[in-house]
């Protein structure tokens, strides 16, 4: 279980980093926390010619409120954000969803943006970003562009990032209301079989997000006092293109949505 050879690059700036990406194209990978990337390298599932280590780039280590957005730089670890004292006030959903990300030891090194880049459909951070309608800031030698979460994540482990682009930051809208979150996994810290989040948008509207059930997070907006929420959820369960794996059948994923979503919504209302 040893990785194949690669070049190791440690650029001092974002410009240098994206230059390297431009040079290597698809053969380069950004290395930030490495908590998802390095297992795949050790399994020899990937064959990058170069790893571009961005952990040391000073411009990427910020946690910053910017207007109605919380911007998190690409070198910020999950635990750093989780221990940011104002997190629960500004982005309550993240504050309750992030403790479900991996373990203390992986959150110490794993980055917020790395989780977004990895785009696992079960992951809590991409689900949170999708629910809140956040943004991903990408940079390439051609400049910067900003994608909405649902434009960025295009499928299971796939994103709209171009080969010469790197995520420099993600932005979470602040000021959303109360949140509730719950997930089912085989073990605490495992990828969720199904994760459900709910956020109250206004007294009359809530957001419900589902992770783990389909190839990417699914977000729906419901009237919070609508009498037929249950049938909305039933309809949602069928709309999800659920998948089967070792731990759950397609049907079981639908059933988990049918059961978890009402529980999370009722927790939100309580």
């Amino acid at each position: 279980m040893k990785p194949r050879s690669f070049e190791y690059l440690r650029p001092a700036s974002v410009d240098e980093a994206v230059e390297a990406l431009a040079r290597y194209g698809d053969d380069a990978r950004i290395l930030a926390g490495g908590q998802s990337l390095i297992p795949m390298l050790n399994f020899r599932l990937l064959e990058p010619l170069a790893l571009v280590d961005i952990r040391h780039i000073a411009d990427l280590s910020h946690i910053r409120l910017d207007g109605d957005m919380l911007e998190v730089g690409a070198a910020v670890t999950q635990n750093r954000l989780l221990s940011w004292p104002d997190l629960a006030r500004h982005v309550p959903l993240l504050a309750i969803a992030m403790p479900w990300v991996g373990h203390f030891q992986t959150r110490n090194r794993g980055t917020v943006c790395g989780s977004i880049a990895h785009a696992d459909p079960s992951s809590e951070i991409p689900l949170s970003l999708a629910m809140l309608g956040g943004e991903v800031v990408l940079q390439s030698p051609r400049g910067r562009r900003v994608l909405k979460a649902d434009e960025f994540q295009t499928g299971m482990l796939s994103t709209a990032r171009e080969a010469d682009e790197m995520i420099v930051a993600v932005r979470f809208p602040t000021g959303s209301g109360k949140a509730a979150f719950r997930e089912v996994a085989r073990r605490h810290g495992d990828y969720a079989i199904v994760a459900v989040g709910a956020v109250s948008l206004s007294p009359s509207e809530i957001l419900v997000g589902i992770g783990g059930a389909a190839d990417r997070p699914v977000v729906r907006r419901y009237a919070s006092n609508g009498g037929d929420l249950m049938s909305e959820i039933e309809a949602l369960a069928w709309e999800l293109e659920t998948y089967e794996d070792l731990h759950a059948s397609q049907r079981m994923r639908r059933d988990l949505v049918r059961r978890l979503a009402p529980a999370v919504i009722s927790e939100l209302r309580s």
Binding site: Y8, R10, Q105, T106, N108, R109
Partner: peptide, 21 residues
């Protein structure tokens, strides 16, 4: 978690890091 060490003040898996880093 057998390989956990403290890197720059935080506990982390040393199998998920390269020496050159």
């Amino acid at each position: 978690g057998c390989c956990t060490v403290i890197i720059d003040g935080v506990a982390a898996r040393s199998c998920l890091a390269f020496a050159v880093q």
